[in-house]
């Protein structure tokens, strides 16, 4: 809502209803936008996406997990040490699990020899057409204008419909109170309560203060490239232009926004 319109409403409200109406008018006028100011350093992407370059991952030290560890500590991910309750936003898995249905003996051989059998990174794809958002009965998971599929931990009712709907296994429920299982708490990001769902948020809290996602920042080989697809000069666009990439399960129509270079 622009300023002239806002002040018109205020004047109209005041003249019609007297001063008693001021709080009402404020509430109505305030609904047009946030009441806080954006950090001037914030990144303003129109369509965030990520490219995972397995070739670069090749150069990393043996058993490198820097990206995963960075995410875990940035987001207060608890470590339950059992697969049943496990919470993971970004993790490593083999090709046949990351890309089921696409494996064949020759590509498996290629991955073993040419890619040293290194695991693939998987995380929420921040789908352009996200089924998790479609099914949520309370809009606790929603798609932001910049393409990030976000969670409202304070609204989620823990029905787990989104976990059934996500074709990438990207979502987690807090099966019990996660707080005792957080190794070292990061005060910059909220901890969650039991009974709510969570997943990768593309580090929206860092983007808001002009920082890159924690995993991207942590990778010494620069194997993770993050950027704006709507910006033709961005690094992600450059990579997508020059290198062949694949996505996970593109046939499902979810339009996943994590691209992989094999």
């Amino acid at each position: 809502m622009d300023d002239t319109r806002r002040s018109f409403l205020k004047i109209a409200g005041l003249s019609m209803l007297g001063f008693g109406a001021k709080p009402v008018v404020d509430a109505v006028a305030g609904a047009g936008g946030p009441k806080f100011e954006k950090d001037p350093k914030a990144f303003n992407g129109k369509r965030w996406a990520m490219v995972v370059d397995q070739q670069k991952c090749l150069k990393a030290k043996d058993g490198c997990k820097d990206c995963v560890l960075a995410c875990n500590s940035a987001h207060n991910i608890p470590s339950f040490n059992n697969p049943k309750d496990e919470i993971k936003w970004i993790w490593q898995t083999s090709f046949e699990h990351a890309f089921p249905g696409q494996e064949n003996p020759y590509i498996n051989d290629y991955i073993k020899t040419s890619l040293k059998g290194l695991p693939f990174l998987v995380l929420c794809n921040h789908c352009d057409n996200p089924p998790c958002v479609r099914v949520c009965p309370v809009q606790a998971t929603f798609r932001r204008p910049d393409g990030i599929v976000a969670m409202d931990y304070h609204r989620c009712i823990g029905c787990r419909f989104c976990m059934a709907a996500c074709p990438y296994g990207a979502r987690n429920l807090n099966w019990s109170d996660p707080r005792p299982f957080i190794k070292k708490e990061n005060p910059e990001y909220p901890t969650r309560t039991r009974g709510v769902v969570e997943k990768c948020n593309f580090c929206s809290e860092l983007l808001a203060v002009g920082k890159l996602p924690a995993c991207v920042e942590a990778c010494k080989e620069k194997a993770l490239v993050f950027g704006d697809l709507e910006d033709p000069n961005s690094e992600v666009r450059e990579l997508l232009r020059t290198r062949p990439t694949i996505q996970r399960k593109p046939q499902l129509g979810t339009r996943p926004q994590i691209y992989y270079i094999l």
């Binding site: 609204r155 009712i157 029905c159 419909f161």
Partner: peptide, 21 residues
């Protein structure tokens, strides 16, 4: 089955016609 039964009424507070639930 709800993780947060205390919030069950959110379904009424934020009606979401695109959700089958």
């Amino acid at each position: 089955d709800l993780g947060r039964p205390d919030r069950a009424f959110n379904v009424l507070l934020y009606p979401t016609p695109n959700s089958v639930l």
